[in-house]
Design a protein around this nucleic acid. Sequence first.
DNA 1: CTCCTCACTGCAAACGTTTGCAGCAGAACT
DNA 2: AGTTCTGCTGCAAACGTTTGCAGTGAGGAG
Lengths: 350, 350
Amino acid sequence: MPATIRDVARESGVHISTVSRTFSAPHLVNPDTRTRVLACAEQLGYRPNRAARALITGRTYNVGLIVADIANPFFPPLIKAAESQARQRDYHIFVADSNEDAAVEEDLVRALAKQVDGILLCSPRMSNSLIELLSREVPLVVINRQITGLPTVVMDVAQGAGLAVDHLAGLGHRRIGLIAGPRGSWTSKEIRRSAALAARAGGAELTVIGPNPPTEHGGAAVAEQVLRSGVSAVLAYNDLMAIGLIEGLHAHGARVPADISVVGIDDIALSRLIHPKLTTVATPAAAAGRAAVDMLLAHGDDRRTTAHASLQTELVIRDSTGPGPDPHSHADPGNAAAAAPEAVASYAKE
Amino acid sequence: MPATIRDVARESGVHISTVSRTFSAPHLVNPDTRTRVLACAEQLGYRPNRAARALITGRTYNVGLIVADIANPFFPPLIKAAESQARQRDYHIFVADSNEDAAVEEDLVRALAKQVDGILLCSPRMSNSLIELLSREVPLVVINRQITGLPTVVMDVAQGAGLAVDHLAGLGHRRIGLIAGPRGSWTSKEIRRSAALAARAGGAELTVIGPNPPTEHGGAAVAEQVLRSGVSAVLAYNDLMAIGLIEGLHAHGARVPADISVVGIDDIALSRLIHPKLTTVATPAAAAGRAAVDMLLAHGDDRRTTAHASLQTELVIRDSTGPGPDPHSHADPGNAAAAAPEAVASYAKE
DNA sequence: CTCCTCACTGCAAACGTTTGCAGCAGAACT
DNA sequence: AGTTCTGCTGCAAACGTTTGCAGTGAGGAG
């Protein structure tokens, strides 16, 4: 039913190979012929069949992008950036959602492998060894996990977590909680490592709670545990959990930041819309999406280059953090000493 | 490099057609042969090449899904539902984002047409005639717009908007604002039509403001205009705009719902997280995603069936709506008469 | 005038599958 | 015993492209 290359060839009185070249190697065909062919193609509504092209060239001009949870507001900006970057090069992005499940993730990679030129694996939950195994079946770029031997794009969340803990310690908090992310998350491990370091340096004690599902519910669910643990400040694995936690704390009658300070990670749009506005570590999700696409597509030219990109993060101080408890009294310390809203502290090297 | 059907055939000592049948028509091959073939396939890591299969069968087992803006929290649940529904039938979903741009939308449909078995067009911004034109190139299911002659899934947002206006009129509001959505949105027109009807029935006057971009910024941008217009209640095209509007109103010193009541549409997760919790019209996005996939895939069997599904919406009353201004005094009416939280009013026929 | 080059075009073999058709046993009828 | 049927398998032609190779004619160089 749809017009094929043969229809165009017949209509314009040339061989199919000339039609083919009109599209994939225009410089090889006579300008007159080319315009005639193009006219016929246009008139017949011809569009090259990508499946047939893929079959012979081995390139699909598709890229897979696997994220843990598309409903997590952290991902859409990354997806959009990757999409537009890919579209510029005439590629399409195949987005899939693993539901935070390593097994689904593996299935997706396998299923996608044959119909894409490469896969962007974002915040994978699989083990490193499995990822390395899969990378032999299809070119992979890993986002948010460092794996030697594979091209990766990471957001330097360790640095951000360090800044966050510094910030809290600077406000006088001596007992700080860390709401860990999901099992299998490299980012969560990084945060933990860096937060522990920063806590020690700042003379604070770090209590880890988790692992937890990285959702609003995950955050709300640990509210009681946080209160019992006696910490006066908390760093959450991501903004969604931080927001859920704040909800949960409010439900238990605790005030933020008067009773407990909360810091998130990601700086999703939502973090500016809740009350109190969330202090958080901003991660450059869009830049990561673009970088990953670039890396994958460059990767196609010279084989087996394993680049690593590490993107800066920033601490954005808003209203959910305040001074720690006065060591000599139990009076409500208020929120007076909170830093200026929207102030940005960063160790950007550039 | 990757194993082909021929490798498996050689290894297991059968003809390639038998290997093919082992996968695509298992009942036609002897159980013994089948297990032998499967073993070889497994061992060689063979996966059928979808491009080759698509070439001959004409079915790609891919479905396109075009949404206006993946960053709008309304869409992800729909996308996830569509994905999982599709995966159950061994289909994959190709998600793309049109950036609220009709021209991009058209390009996407054309680009996707040849590599999918059908496209789910969600909240399209294109004209009806263009959509009808495109539907001749590739099977289309339209979500959130009624088009005769094409299979469609709509959420009955007119009904919900009517309920919302009834609710506001019932609270004593006599001047109600409607923050319209983007130009080209069928849903926006529906809301407007239905809200006008309900307003007249409830003895209220409806002021339409817009069109506007359907984002938080779009809502915030009209805050001043809303205040000047003298309305005491507002229905917004979607939750994102309602939330932006509330932010904007707060910035101008107005209180919600004491000074102005605000109702959103969609019931995104976020609407429960802000203060005041948003009264809104819940739309069954996930159900719509599933229905659309079903419709598209059923569509494949008997050609040219044009089904229409209309999904119920519900009014979810939370804390952003309160009584209208007392006609005899200008005293602050407070929030006492607000309905019980999370009460649900619905005209569900079933 | 001959030969070479050059720009263009046609030919045909791939790419990895699916599928209608035919063949061939052996089983089950008549 | 002959016939039909059934279950399985092989054969080969497609599907719509791309691409190395060969062929064509025109024009330029010698």
